[in-house]
Amino acid sequence: MKKTKFRFPARINGATVAKKTFIYVVLIGLCLSFIIPYFWMLITSLRTELAYNSTGFTLLPLDEQGHLSLFFGNYKEAFTALNLGQVLLNTLIVCVANTFLNLFLNSLAAYAFARLKFFAKNTIFKIILFSMMVPGTVMLVPNFLICDYLGITDSLFALILPFVMSVYNIFLLRQQFLGVDKGIEEAARIEGAGPFRIYLRIVLPLVKPMMVVLGITTFMWNYGNYLWPYIVNVDPNLRTLATSLAELTGSGYDLTVQLAGAVIVSAPMIIVFFILQKYIVGGTMEGAVKG
């Protein structure tokens, strides 16, 4: 009896399979180049300096004899080296204060430009828009001089105040306010509500999504802001997480300790990112330039 072999059809074109595999290989390779550094940083921070120097390339937390072991001493050292308690407090104060002030004052201004009428409104708006587009680095030196003149150098105020207004935030919030249905405001006005009340109780809640996105981005920007605090504050007790970490790097601590410090400082934001992933990745897309 003949034994015939029956074949299922090759539903997938050979060329398409090759093409797709190639794409996946490239993308996954690229992904690895992103994941490995972080992973290495995390693992190495859990090893002793001795262990690190004794072994060659490895992505496992091995000690000097090649056994798996987790060493938390680096973190202890980094805690003190970073002066974590004080520094964390400083950072939180600055981030929260700046974000709060930023959102509040910027939305006030944005609302004014969107809805209120006053003399020379458009001219002022254009001037401010244009001048605040001056790149940050250009403003560093002048701002330092002003802070020096005002006597607020070497204080937390210097970290909060100079960044309280942001033209990007004002612009986006103004767009949002323009999109709010005027009828609601007019109804409130007839009821006798003053402009501030309308702004606070009625319109502001309606732009919550944008406020949340801007709040997140502002907070993250403050958290990681290094250059300005470095320039303006010299007192070690006024350091933020960013400047403290930079100090740690330059001071000859063990590589493992430095990495532990980096993990401590960067981990919170990354974790928050993974939790809020869709808002951030989605939020950025909404404000993105249309091709």
Partner: peptide, 28 residues
Amino acid sequence: KTIFYIPSVTVSVAMMVMWKQMLAPDGL
């Protein structure tokens, strides 16, 4: 997209530390 975006949420100082150690003579 999420993986590629991680550096954007990494504090720049921390990222510099990471790279500095990665590129060190005894680094990764």
